[in-house]
Amino acid sequence: KYLVLALYDYQEKSPREVTMKKGDILTLLNSTNKDWWKVEVNGRQGFVPAAYVKYL
């Protein structure tokens, strides 16, 4: 498993997404889509914009 760092705040806009705050450390679950990565944060799984996170 990889960890990624939230570069920006992101507010979920659909039930498939998750909210994150700048500085959050997220567990990367799937990065096959170049635009949306599946992550786990605070016990929830969902998608965030790939451009908003970077590998640690």
Rank of each mutant, 00 (worst) to 15 (best):
L28K: 01
K21Y: 10
Q11E: 15
D35L: 14
L7W: 05
P15C: 10
K38D: 04
Y8L: 11
T19V: 03
V4N: 01
V48G: 00
T32V: 11
E40G: 06
V41K: 14
Y10F: 08
W36E: 04
S14L: 09
N42L: 08
Q45F: 08
E12H: 09
K34E: 11
F47A: 02
Y8H: 12
F47E: 04
W36C: 07
L26V: 08
M20V: 10
I25V: 13
Y10D: 01
T32N: 14
A6V: 09
D35N: 13
P49F: 03
T19N: 07
T32S: 15
Q45K: 11
V41M: 12
N33C: 10
D9I: 02
T27I: 15
E17S: 07
N33W: 07
L5F: 10
N42Q: 10
Y2N: 12
Y2H: 15
A51D: 10
Q11F: 14
N30M: 08
V39I: 08
V48C: 03
L56Q: 07
G43S: 07
G43M: 05
V53H: 00
K21L: 08
N30I: 08
K22R: 12
T32R: 12
L26N: 01
V53S: 00
R16D: 14
M20K: 00
E12S: 15
V39Q: 00
K54E: 11
T27V: 15
T27Q: 12
T19Q: 05
D35E: 13
K13P: 04
G43E: 07
Y52C: 09
T19E: 04
V48T: 02
R16A: 13
K22N: 04
K34R: 11
R44N: 08
F47K: 03
L28V: 09
V41P: 00
T32M: 12
P49E: 01
L3N: 07
V53A: 03
K1L: 13
T27A: 10
K22S: 08
A6W: 04
K54D: 09
V39P: 00
Q11G: 07
V4A: 10
K54T: 15
D24A: 07
K38Q: 14
E17T: 09
D24G: 03
E40R: 08
W36Q: 03
N33Y: 08
G23C: 07
L5D: 01
V48R: 00
N30S: 14
V18E: 01
V4Y: 11
L29K: 05
I25W: 05
S31A: 14
L3T: 09
D35Q: 13
K34G: 10
E17V: 05
V39Y: 00
G46N: 01
P49T: 02
D35G: 10
Y10T: 01
V39S: 00
Y10V: 01
K38Y: 15
L3H: 11
A51W: 07
V53T: 04
V4M: 09
K54G: 11
L7V: 09
G46Y: 03
L3D: 05
V18W: 04
R44D: 04
G43W: 03
L29V: 12
L29D: 01
V53Q: 00
K22G: 06
R16H: 15
V39E: 00
D35R: 13
K22Y: 04
S14Y: 07
A50V: 06
L7S: 04
L28Q: 01
K38W: 14
L26K: 00
W36Y: 08
R44F: 06
G46I: 03
K38V: 13
Y55K: 13
R16N: 15
W37F: 09
S14M: 08
Y8S: 10
L56D: 06
Y10N: 01
M20Y: 02
N42C: 09
M20H: 01
L56P: 05
F47P: 00
L3W: 12
V39W: 00
W36G: 00
W37G: 00
S31C: 13
V53D: 00
Q11H: 14
Q45A: 13
V18N: 04
L3G: 04
E40N: 06
E17H: 06
L28W: 02
Y8V: 12
P15M: 08
K13F: 05
V48P: 00
Y55F: 15
V53C: 11
Y2Q: 15
N30G: 07
K38E: 13
R44Q: 09
L3C: 10
S31R: 12
P15E: 12
L29F: 05
K1Y: 14
E12W: 05
K21E: 06
K38F: 15
V4Q: 01
E17A: 06
K1A: 13
A51K: 14
T19Y: 04
S14I: 05
K13G: 08
T27Y: 13
V48F: 00
G43L: 05
P15T: 11
D35W: 14
A50C: 06
N30C: 11
K34S: 13
Y10Q: 01
Q11C: 10
L26Q: 00
S31D: 14
P15V: 11
P49H: 02
T19M: 04
L3Y: 15
Y2A: 14
K22L: 05
Y10C: 02
K54H: 11
K34F: 08
Y8M: 14
G23A: 03
D35P: 03
K13A: 13
G46H: 02
Y10R: 02
D24P: 00
A50R: 13
I25L: 09
Q11W: 11
A6I: 03
Q45I: 15
L29G: 01
N30R: 07
I25D: 01
T19H: 05
W37S: 04
A50K: 07
N42G: 12
G43N: 08
K38T: 07
A51V: 10
R16P: 06
F47V: 07
W36M: 07
V41N: 12
Y55M: 15
V18H: 03
P49C: 04
N33L: 09
E40S: 10
L29H: 06
R16Q: 14
L3P: 04
S31V: 10
N30Y: 08
E12Q: 13
T19W: 04
M20A: 02
V39H: 00
S14K: 08
Q45T: 14
